[in-house]
Protein backbone atom coordinates (compact mmCIF):
# COMPACT_ATOMS: atom_id res chain seq x y z
CA UNK A 1 0.00 0.00 0.00
CA UNK A 2 1.32 3.39 -0.99
CA UNK A 3 1.01 6.26 1.46
CA UNK A 4 -1.26 9.18 0.59
CA UNK A 5 -0.32 12.71 1.56
CA UNK A 6 -2.05 14.78 4.24
CA UNK A 7 -3.32 17.22 1.63
CA UNK A 8 -5.02 14.39 -0.25
CA UNK A 9 -6.50 13.09 3.01
CA UNK A 10 -7.85 16.57 3.85
CA UNK A 11 -9.38 16.95 0.41
CA UNK A 12 -11.06 13.55 0.54
CA UNK A 13 -12.42 14.14 4.03
CA UNK A 14 -13.72 17.59 2.95
CA UNK A 15 -15.59 15.89 0.10
CA UNK A 16 -17.09 13.42 2.57
CA UNK A 17 -17.90 16.02 5.24
CA UNK A 18 -19.66 18.29 2.76
CA UNK A 19 -21.52 15.28 1.29
CA UNK A 20 -20.36 16.19 -2.21
CA UNK A 21 -21.72 13.84 -4.86
CA UNK A 22 -21.16 13.92 -8.62
CA UNK A 23 -23.91 15.70 -10.55
CA UNK A 24 -25.93 13.50 -12.88
CA UNK A 25 -24.73 13.16 -16.48
CA UNK A 26 -28.21 14.30 -17.60
CA UNK A 27 -27.74 17.60 -15.83
CA UNK A 28 -24.83 18.37 -18.17
CA UNK A 29 -26.59 16.98 -21.24
CA UNK A 30 -29.58 19.25 -20.53
CA UNK A 31 -27.38 22.27 -19.85
CA UNK A 32 -25.45 21.72 -23.05
CA UNK A 33 -28.68 21.31 -25.03
CA UNK A 34 -30.09 24.56 -23.63
CA UNK A 35 -26.95 26.37 -24.79
CA UNK A 36 -27.64 25.14 -28.34
CA UNK A 37 -31.26 26.40 -28.45
CA UNK A 38 -30.47 30.06 -29.33
CA UNK A 39 -28.07 28.81 -32.03
CA UNK A 40 -30.80 26.72 -33.64
CA UNK A 41 -33.35 29.55 -33.32
CA UNK A 42 -30.86 31.95 -34.94
CA UNK A 43 -30.33 29.64 -37.89
CA UNK A 44 -34.09 29.17 -38.37
CA UNK A 45 -34.67 32.91 -38.08
CA UNK A 46 -31.93 33.42 -40.66
CA UNK A 47 -33.56 30.81 -42.90
CA UNK A 48 -36.88 32.67 -42.65
CA UNK A 49 -35.11 35.91 -43.58
CA UNK A 50 -33.44 34.26 -46.58
CA UNK A 51 -36.79 32.80 -47.68
CA UNK A 52 -38.26 36.31 -47.46
CA UNK A 53 -35.44 37.79 -49.53
CA UNK A 54 -35.76 35.05 -52.17
CA UNK A 55 -39.50 35.67 -52.25
CA UNK A 56 -38.86 39.38 -52.79
CA UNK A 57 -36.45 38.65 -55.65
CA UNK A 58 -38.78 36.17 -57.32
CA UNK A 59 -41.88 38.37 -56.93
CA UNK A 60 -40.38 41.79 -57.38
CA UNK A 61 -43.51 43.14 -59.10
CA UNK A 62 -45.70 42.18 -56.13
CA UNK A 63 -43.37 43.81 -53.63
CA UNK A 64 -43.32 46.93 -55.78
CA UNK A 65 -47.10 46.76 -55.95
CA UNK A 66 -47.36 46.64 -52.19
CA UNK A 67 -45.16 49.67 -51.88
CA UNK A 68 -47.03 51.51 -54.60
CA UNK A 69 -50.38 50.66 -53.00
CA UNK A 70 -49.48 52.75 -49.95
CA UNK A 71 -49.01 55.82 -52.09
CA UNK A 72 -45.23 55.73 -51.64
CA UNK A 73 -45.17 55.97 -47.83
CA UNK A 74 -41.44 55.69 -46.97
CA UNK A 75 -42.18 53.80 -43.73
CA UNK A 76 -43.81 51.09 -45.74
CA UNK A 77 -40.74 50.90 -47.94
CA UNK A 78 -38.70 50.07 -44.85
CA UNK A 79 -41.28 47.61 -43.53
CA UNK A 80 -41.32 45.81 -46.88
CA UNK A 81 -37.63 45.07 -46.62
CA UNK A 82 -36.60 42.32 -44.19
CA UNK A 83 -34.65 44.82 -42.09
CA UNK A 84 -36.27 43.76 -38.85
CA UNK A 85 -35.48 40.14 -39.58
CA UNK A 86 -31.90 41.05 -40.34
CA UNK A 87 -31.59 43.08 -37.13
CA UNK A 88 -33.09 40.34 -34.97
CA UNK A 89 -30.88 37.80 -36.75
CA UNK A 90 -27.86 39.90 -35.78
CA UNK A 91 -29.00 40.09 -32.16
CA UNK A 92 -29.70 36.37 -31.96
CA UNK A 93 -26.34 35.61 -33.59
CA UNK A 94 -24.55 37.59 -30.91
CA UNK A 95 -26.35 35.82 -28.06
CA UNK A 96 -26.00 32.38 -29.59
CA UNK A 97 -22.28 32.82 -30.26
CA UNK A 98 -21.70 33.77 -26.63
CA UNK A 99 -23.64 30.69 -25.51
CA UNK A 100 -22.11 28.35 -28.11
CA UNK A 101 -18.70 29.29 -26.74
CA UNK A 102 -19.78 27.67 -23.48
CA UNK A 103 -20.62 24.33 -25.07
CA UNK A 104 -18.16 21.41 -24.96
CA UNK A 105 -16.17 22.30 -28.08
CA UNK A 106 -17.68 25.65 -29.05
CA UNK A 107 -14.70 27.65 -27.83
CA UNK A 108 -12.42 25.94 -30.35
CA UNK A 109 -14.08 27.91 -33.18
CA UNK A 110 -13.62 31.59 -33.87
CA UNK A 111 -16.57 34.00 -33.96
CA UNK A 112 -16.17 34.26 -37.74
CA UNK A 113 -16.34 30.46 -38.12
CA UNK A 114 -19.47 30.19 -35.96
CA UNK A 115 -21.12 33.08 -37.80
CA UNK A 116 -20.22 31.62 -41.21
CA UNK A 117 -21.68 28.22 -40.29
CA UNK A 118 -24.86 29.88 -39.04
CA UNK A 119 -25.25 32.11 -42.14
CA UNK A 120 -24.45 29.26 -44.58
CA UNK A 121 -26.99 26.97 -42.85
CA UNK A 122 -29.57 29.77 -42.92
CA UNK A 123 -29.07 30.30 -46.66
CA UNK A 124 -29.41 26.59 -47.47
CA UNK A 125 -32.43 26.06 -45.19
CA UNK A 126 -33.97 29.37 -46.38
CA UNK A 127 -33.77 28.38 -50.05
CA UNK A 128 -35.20 24.94 -49.23
CA UNK A 129 -37.92 26.59 -47.17
CA UNK A 130 -38.81 28.87 -50.08
CA UNK A 131 -38.75 25.97 -52.58
CA UNK A 132 -40.98 23.76 -50.41
CA UNK A 133 -43.52 26.47 -49.56
CA UNK A 134 -43.49 28.17 -52.95
CA UNK A 135 -46.96 26.95 -53.87
CA UNK A 136 -48.52 28.04 -50.62
CA UNK A 137 -46.76 31.41 -50.94
CA UNK A 138 -48.32 31.92 -54.34
CA UNK A 139 -51.69 31.05 -52.88
CA UNK A 140 -51.18 33.65 -50.17
CA UNK A 141 -50.32 36.20 -52.82
CA UNK A 142 -53.37 35.26 -54.84
CA UNK A 143 -55.56 35.62 -51.78
CA UNK A 144 -53.99 38.99 -51.16
CA UNK A 145 -54.79 40.13 -54.66
CA UNK A 146 -58.29 38.64 -54.64
CA UNK A 147 -59.44 41.67 -52.68
CA UNK A 148 -57.02 44.36 -53.85
CA UNK A 149 -57.23 47.98 -52.84
CA UNK A 150 -57.93 50.56 -55.51
CA UNK A 151 -54.23 51.51 -55.61
CA UNK A 152 -53.20 47.87 -55.99
CA UNK A 153 -55.77 47.31 -58.69
CA UNK A 154 -54.57 50.29 -60.67
CA UNK A 155 -50.91 49.41 -60.26
CA UNK A 156 -51.42 45.74 -61.07
CA UNK A 157 -53.38 46.61 -64.17
CA UNK A 158 -50.74 49.11 -65.22
CA UNK A 159 -47.92 46.57 -65.03
CA UNK A 160 -49.94 43.69 -66.40
CA UNK A 161 -51.95 45.28 -69.25
CA UNK A 162 -52.45 41.90 -70.93
CA UNK A 163 -54.07 40.49 -67.85
CA UNK A 164 -56.27 43.56 -67.66
CA UNK A 165 -57.57 42.78 -71.13
CA UNK A 166 -58.31 39.20 -70.18
CA UNK A 167 -60.05 40.23 -66.98
CA UNK A 168 -62.08 42.97 -68.65
CA UNK A 169 -65.76 42.35 -68.27
CA UNK A 170 -67.08 40.33 -71.15
CA UNK A 171 -70.52 41.19 -72.42
CA UNK A 172 -73.20 38.92 -70.99
CA UNK A 173 -74.21 37.24 -74.22
CA UNK A 174 -77.35 35.61 -72.81
CA UNK A 175 -78.96 38.86 -71.64
CA UNK A 176 -78.16 40.67 -74.86
CA UNK A 177 -80.50 40.34 -77.79
CA UNK A 178 -79.12 38.26 -80.55
CA UNK A 179 -78.20 40.49 -83.41
CA UNK A 180 -79.22 39.25 -86.72
CA UNK A 181 -76.36 38.15 -88.81
CA UNK A 182 -76.13 40.10 -91.95
CA UNK A 183 -75.78 37.76 -94.78
Amino acid sequence: MEQISDTTKNILSAIQDKHVTPRSRWYFVLRNSILWVPGVVTTLLGAYTVAGVVYGIMHVEIVQGRVQSTGGNPLFYIATMPLLWVASFGLFSLVSIILLRKTHNGYRHTTLQLLSISVASSIVIGILFYAVTQDSDDNTVNTYYRYPTQHQKEYYERIFPAERMIRQEQPDRQSQPVAPIAL
Binding site: K18, P22, R23, F28
Partner: peptide, 10 residues
Protein backbone atom coordinates in the same frame (compact mmCIF):
# COMPACT_ATOMS: atom_id res chain seq x y z
CA UNK B 1 -11.03 19.00 -6.17
CA UNK B 2 -14.56 19.45 -4.80
CA UNK B 3 -15.52 21.03 -8.14
CA UNK B 4 -13.76 18.26 -10.05
CA UNK B 5 -15.62 15.59 -8.10
CA UNK B 6 -18.99 17.33 -8.36
CA UNK B 7 -18.62 17.85 -12.12
CA UNK B 8 -16.83 14.62 -12.97
CA UNK B 9 -19.68 13.61 -15.32
CA UNK B 10 -19.09 16.76 -17.34
Amino acid sequence: FIKVYRNINE
